[in-house]
């Protein structure tokens, strides 16, 4: 059964090799790769950071909004919940009513968490 995952590994490596092949093809065929190109304009302006055509203003790494962090945190919590839900779901019929009641309690605890986040406006704005 473990050799099944050998296929997965080969797919991952083959994917990387295909993409590197595509990169090399792009580099070989592009004007500033293998084919060579005489720049008629200033190259520094071309490869500078793009900001709608003006000079960049300030640092590129700004302090980001805390909402991103809150969404990521909530995602981690619910992802762990789904990790617990999957094995339970696979053996659902064998566990019967008792297992179902236990899982209802677990889901309700996490739903209370979601309701709290909703009420405290952690899910608001973007």
């Amino acid at each position: 059964m473990l050799e099944q995952y050998g296929y997965v590994l080969v797919f991952l490596m083959a994917g990387i090799v295909f993409i590197l092949g595509a990169f090399i093809t792009g580099w070989a065929l592009s004007p500033n790769g293998l084919l060579g190109l005489k720049y008629k304009y200033k190259k520094e302006v071309l490869v500078d950071t793009y900001e709608c055509g003006v000079e960049t203003y300030g640092s590129s790494w700004f302090r980001f909004n805390v909402s991103f962090y809150l969404y990521a945190l909530l995602f981690v919590i619910f992802d762990i919940e789904t990790v617990f839900l999957y094995p339970w779901a696979v053996s659902f019929k064998a566990l019967g009513m008792f297992g179902f009641m236990e899982m209802i309690v677990f889901i309700l605890i996490l739903l209370v968490g979601l309701a709290y986040a909703w009420k405290k406006e952690a899910l608001k704005w973007e």
Binding site: L12, G26, N32
Partner: peptide, 25 residues
């Protein structure tokens, strides 16, 4: 494929090249 490969001069080299590879693989 034959477009000019414009690489921004202040890029972070390793994540810049790895990102499209991961997106496909």
């Amino acid at each position: 494929t034959i477009k000019e490969d414009i690489k921004p001069v202040h890029r972070d080299k390793i994540p810049y090249y790895i990102a499209p590879i991961i997106a496909f693989v």
